[in-house]
Design a protein around this nucleic acid. Structure first.
Length: 874
RNA sequence: GGGAGCUUAGCUCAGUUGGUUUAGAGCAUCUGCCUUACAAGCAGAGGGUCGGGGGUUCGAAUCCCUCAGCUCCCA
């Protein structure tokens, strides 16, 4: 045999992927067929494939490939995201390494560096996806900063502004002092850290011996205090409300106010209020008309309001002010405390709540249809438990801060024509802006009077249009593509971006097309390592997917990553799973080696083959039904497991063994023809999971005309299952397993033939006995009326079987086996009896349940009788 | 602090409106086999008081309460 003993994936992968591309199988254009659309969650343009992408994209490819085989017009749109912060950070870093600081560059210069970087590193990830076998329509590759895409982002901004949904305002934002930009709430990670709680006393004005002690974790903000707040019901402090106290070190006078917001039990029950540097204090400040004193520069150092600390970093100030407060007698004590601190998702800097002028989208109304249509099931979540989380967020949705102090991204289309913050217009072009500004200002302006907003838009403000804009649905409304492909079918993504992305796509979909962007959202889990840690670059615990593909083959990795990852569950990944996947591809490869080695001869078909074919035909239909059902319910891992077992157990371990001719014996053509047909069907259902080996063997199996490829072959038809052959097989399987047990117990090699006698009327004999003869390697199979002495025996479905072999038999072992079985059956009978003797059960349980218990009782009684008789006979 | 979810074999998970033999699968483990498709394999076996406690019911892994532990989201 000159076929390799193990499957070598690399050659097949290159060959078939190129073939699929050459044939244009992944390219889709609208036609009469039903569309099936998936838009890829666009990875960061300069990103590199990690295990999360592998999981996510393998699932999408499985769905797309199956849809294609089901005859749908499958379209999987790939692309990349410009990823403002992440990409800008990378470019800044790269320039820094070259000794160039961002601040030395003009916006234009920086952007040209950024585009250069994008050209060089952009799209590597898409090439990597090809290695995985992703069947994307590469002719449709999009980028969120493509010209036409940008146009739609800007037009949406303008539209929302005109509808009054976008406003500019001073708000407390999450400020990243390292990236020097505002962040959305979703870009802040809160972590528990060990901190100190400082107890600081403030003197009451004109009362030398009266002090008020507050507790704070941020003493460096004391200089920004504009009030002290206590609970109105707190008896300890009621006499001080309305009085004035002095801010330590600077002796500024601030009032003592009362508000129920204060937690009486935390610290001393007195809260220092710093409206400029804490969101809750900000609200208190608004409510009580307190001034805000901003202490910080953008980079986290103190400004001139910080008195002698001006110019020093906030953390340095915290250390120094502790000493000064101590020396001056203001520090009462410190305590260790664990509190939660916000960190920037991108730079890991400690977030500084900061008042600033930013752009916002007002979300409440926009979110309504997006909430409603998830709750009513128009958009389905898999698993649907995520609906709860989604609802909770959408019902409490906050306005969305969409401006970022960055250069890489879509620049906000607002033009200012004076220094007053309100003097601006929003327009698509500078020319339009000039016209509008002239009108608004009521005086002649020139282009040089206009200054465009420096900020860019949050990345998600472009990605929320992804399912629309990849079909140019906004720039060319109602074009044939958007009408055909939208709404898309399935979205596969991670639950962590449910709000960043999923919710906002839903919002944009209803707002701009009046329709949902997708019908199903499949949430994958997080890929973790064996120790349960999230895979990340910084931990270095993520294997390189490309290495895995080189080691186990793309098919092996695909199986490995899907084999146990139900929707919504985290996936503890270990490369041994890919080994299992590789073994699976090797298994089917060797099944092919076997089948291809047979010589065909014109001869009569063995009875056992006939039985085997009838069985497998029905077994296939049965499992296909399960697989289809699993797919329909988005139970991808289960669909894979069913496929795996059908191939390995049913096809290889049972079917092929049943029809396999003896060594170097020929096979009859009828059996071979059926076998090839089964093999082909099996390859088809394997194809979504293991596309490469399936295509390779599909072509090895038979000569194919050009254009006959499994990637576009029709998914096998479901058909009705006949139960009789399945029941017959189940019976035979039990008998054969018992025979194997006897061999094992008595150390009898498979090669040595056995005799088997069945205690039943000969009329019970049927065609299927031939399978027992073959699989059990029997020299004789006979029917008897009486038990056969000196034999091993077993019972299947109440029928006794005997395998005689005289002196070789191990009497003690046989006795032990019978006793164990007797004990089990008696215990079982007891549990059945306890039900049947319970009057309440008899009265309350439905008839069918009672009847079933009676049948169990009868079966058990019969079995006990047989076992007892056997034991006596020994 | 508020909300959601989870806890079933060594590991990862099924278990669909409570009833189909004293709970299933894959992997791992153990035993025996290099049997001419595959040792990346074959055959067989062992392993769980369904997180603890209480309740509802004729009947609970499944429904309710409670305790404990874990995870995620939000502030």
């Amino acid at each position: 045999m000159d076929i390799a003993k193990t499957y070598e994936p690399q050659l097949a992968q290159e060959k078939w992927y190129q073939h699929w591309l050459d044939k244009g199988y992944f390219h889709s254009v609208p036609d009469h067929r039903e569309p099936y659309t998936i838009v890829i969650p666009p990875p960061n343009v300069t990103g590199v494939l990690h295990m999360g992408h592998m999981l996510n994209n393998t699932i999408q490819d499985v769905l797309v490939r199956r849809a294609r085989m089901l005859g749908k017009n499958a379209c999987w749109v790939p692309g990349t995201d410009h990823a403002s912060i992440a990409t800008e950070a990378k470019v800044v870093q790269k320039l820094k390494a070259e000794g160039i600081s961002k601040s030395e560059l003009s916006r234009e210069e920086f952007l040209s560096h950024a585009f250069e970087w994008k050209e060089k590193h952009g799209g590597i990830i898409l090439e990597q996806l090809k290695r995985l076998g992703a069947s994307c329509d590469w002719e449709r590759t999009h980028f969120t900063m493509d010209l036409e895409y940008s146009e739609s982002v800007i037009s949406v901004f303008i539209d929302l502004y005109q509808k009054g949904k976008i406003y500019r305002g001073v708000r407390m934002v999450n400020w990243d002092p390292e990236a020097l930009t505002a962040l959305s709430d979703e870009e802040v990670n809160y972590k528990e850290v060990n901190s100190k709680l400082f107890y600081v006393r403030y003197q009451v004005l004109d009362q030398a011996d009266q002090w008020l002690t507050i507790a704070t974790t941020r003493p460096e903000t004391i200089l920004g205090d504009t009030a002290i707040c206590v609970h109105p019901d707190d008896e300890r402090y009621q006499h001080l409300v309305g009085k004035t106290v002095l801010v330590p070190l600077v002796n500024r006078q601030i009032p003592v106010i009362a508000d129920a917001y204060v937690d009486k039990d935390f610290g001393t029950g007195c809260l220092k209020v710093t409206p400029a540097h804490d969101p809750n204090d900000y609200e208190l400040g608004q409510k009580h008309n307190l001034p805000s004193i901003d202490l910080f520069n953008d980079d986290g150092t103190l400004n001139s309001n910080g008195a002698h600390y001006a110019g020093k970093d906030r953390f340095e100030v915290r250390r120094e002010i502790e000493k000064e407060l101590q020396n001056e007698g203001f520090l009462v004590k410190t305590e260790d405390i664990i509190n939660k601190v916000g960190f920037s998702e991108r730079t890991s800097a400690v977030i500084e709540p900061k008042l600033s002028l930013q752009w916002f989208v007002s979300m409440k109304e926009l979110a309504e249809p997006a909430l409603e249509n998830v709750m009513n099931g128009n958009i389905q979540f898999h698993p649907d438990k995520f609906k709860n989380t989604y609802r909770h967020w959408m019902e409490n949705v906050k306005d969305w801060c969409i401006s970022r102090q960055l250069w890489w991204g879509h620049r906000i289309p607002a033009w200012y024509y004076s220094d007053r913050p309100a003097d601006f217009v929003v327009a698509k072009t500078q020319q339009e802006a000039l016209q509008l500004a002239t009108q608004k200002a009521g005086r002649e302006l020139s282009l040089s009077d206009l200054r465009q907003d420096e900020d860019v838009l949050d990345t998600w403000f472009s990605s929320w249009l992804w399912p629309i804009s990849v079909f140019n649905g906004l720039t060319q409304p109602n074009n044939p593509e958007i009408n055909y492909y939208y709404p898309t079918n399935d979205l596969v993504t991670a639950p962590e971006i449910m709000f960043f992305w999923v919710a906002r796509m839903a919002i944009a979909g209803y707002e701009y097309l009046g329709q949902q962007p997708f019908k199903n959202v499949y949430y994958t889990g997080i890929v973790r390592d064996k120790l349960g840690r999230k895979m990340s670059k910084s931990l270095g615990n993520s294997p390189d997917p490309i290495d895995l593909i080189n080691q186990f083959g793309a098919d092996g990795v695909r199986v490995g990553i899907l084999i146990s990852s139900p929707a919504g569950n985290d996936l503890p990944f270990d490369s041994s799973q890919c080994e299992q996947g590789r073994n699976f591809t090797n298994k089917i490869w060797n099944a092919y080696r076997l089948v291809s080695s047979w010589e065909v001869k014109k001869m009569e078909q063995p009875q056992s083959s006939k039985v085997a074919i009838n069985w497998f035909d029905n077994r296939f239909a049965q499992v296909l039904g399960e697989i289809n059902d699993n797919f329909d319910k988005f139970r991808i891992s289960d669909a894979l497991m069913s496929t795996y077992k059908l191939v390995w157990d049913d096809f290889c371990s049972w079917y092929l063994e049943m029809i396999k001719p003896g060594y170097q014996q020929p096979i009859d053509s009828l059996t071979l023809e059926h076998t090839l047909d089964f093999f082909e069907r099996i390859l088809k259902i394997m194809h979504p999971f293991t596309p490469f080996v399936a295509e390779e063997l599909y072509h090895a199996l038979r000569e194919r005309e050009s254009g006959d490829d499994i990637v576009i072959a029709a998914w096998p038809e479901a058909k009705e299952v006949a139960n009789e052959p399945l029941a017959q097989f189940a019976f035979n399987e039990k008998v054969i397993t018992q025979l194997r047990n006897i061999r094992k117990q008595n150390n009898i090699a498979t090669k040595i033939p056995l005799e088997l006698y069945i205690k039943a009327a000969a009329s019970r004999a049927n065609e299927a006995d031939s399978v027992i003869v073959k699989m059990g390697n029997l020299s004789a199979l006979g029917y008897v009326q009486e038990k056969v002495a000196q034999s091993n025996s077993f019972i299947v479905d109440g029928i006794e079987f005997f395998v005689p072999f005289g002196e070789q038999m191990d009497l003690e072992a046989e006795k032990k086996k019978l006793e164990d079985e007797l004990q089990y059956t008696r215990g079982f009978l007891k549990s059945v009896h306890s039900k049947l003797q319970n009057e309440k059960f008899m009265a309350g349980a439905p008839e069918a349940v009672v009847a079933n218990e009676r049948k169990k009782e009868a079966d058990a009684l019969q079995k006990i009788a047989i076992l007892e008789e056997k034991l006596n006979g020994l």
